[in-house]
Amino acid sequence: MADLRVDLAGVTLRNPIVTASGTFGYGKEYSSLIPLERLGAITVKGVSPFPSAGNPTPRTAEVYGGMLNAIGLQNPGIDAFISHPDYLPFLRSVDCPVFVNIWGRTVEQYAEVASRLEQERKGIAALEINISCPNIKEGGIAFGTDLGQAAKVVSAVRAATSLPLITKLSPNVTRIGDFARCAVDAGSDMISLINTIPGMAIDIETRTFRIANRTGGLSGPGIKPVAVRMVYEARQAVKVPIIGMGGVRTAEDAIEFMMAGANAVGVGTAIFSNPHCLLDIIDGMDAWLDRHGIADVSSIIGVM
C-alpha cells in the first residue's frame, strides 16, 4: 500500500484521481455505480449564473479513438445548483473534495458565480474556472486563448472568493506555458489541462456535419500524447499544482501524466465507456507503485 495522497494548494486528496468536468454530472448520477468517497475529488459539470439550455442536437459523435462533443455547457444555473437536493446539498453529504467548475459569458458573470459559491462554500474544496470550453459562442475558449482576457477573468474570480482556484486551460494555443503563468500571476492557485481539442466530423453520405454545432471538442485516448506534452510544458512554466488530463484510461496513463508534471490526474471520457475504470485506475496506481518499490505517489511528480 503506497501513500496515494496528494496535496493541491492545501487541499488534500486521498488519491490523485479526479473526475473531469462535464463527464461525471454532479456526482449523484454515478453514486449507485461508484463509491464516491473513494475518488480523489469530484469536479462537477460547469455552472453558470443562469440556467443554460446548451447546444442543438446531435451533440456528440464517436470518432476513431475518441469522441467529439458540443454539449454547450447545459446546466441548471447557480440558484438550482446551490439549492436543489441533486446538486450541492447532495455533494455536501459525500466524503470527497468537490471542485465546482464555473463559467460565464462575461468577466462579470464569472465573478458572480464565484461570489455566490464563496457564500455557500461549505462542501466546496475549490473552484475550477473554465476558460477553455470550445463549444459556446461567448465565454469559454474566447477567454482561454487571449492572455489579456484570461488574466481579467482569473483576477475577477480571485477578487470574488478566497476559495482555492484552478484555471482550466485550452490546448488551442501555441505556447501553453504563457497561459499557465498568466493564470498563476492573476491569482490562480492551480491549473488544470487540457480541455478538449476543437475538431469536426462530416457524414459524407448525407453531406451533413455530424454535430449540429459543426465543431466539437475531441476527447478520448487519441488526445493523450498532446495532453502529456502540454502538462510537461506547463510544468516547466509554473510551480503550482497541475491537474493533468486528456485521454486517461488506465493507471499507467495516470502515472505518465504525473511523471510529466501533474500533481493529480483527471479522468473524463473513459468514464462513459467504463465507470468502474475510476477505481481500476486508483487500485492500479497503488499496485504499480508497490511493484516499483515507491512508497509515496508524490515522489513521481514531474520527474521528467
Binding site: 454530472g25 448520477e29 455505480l33 446548451g54 446531435p58 456528440t60 454539449i71 462513459f272 465507470p275
Partner: peptide, 15 residues
C-alpha cells in the same frame, strides 16, 4: 437516441 454515459451525466442524448 444515441447515448454516451447512459446515466444522466453528459447531456448528449437530450430531446
Amino acid at each position: 437516441h444515441a447515448m454516451c454515459c447512459g446515466v444522466g451525466a453528459c447531456f448528449a442524448c437530450v430531446v
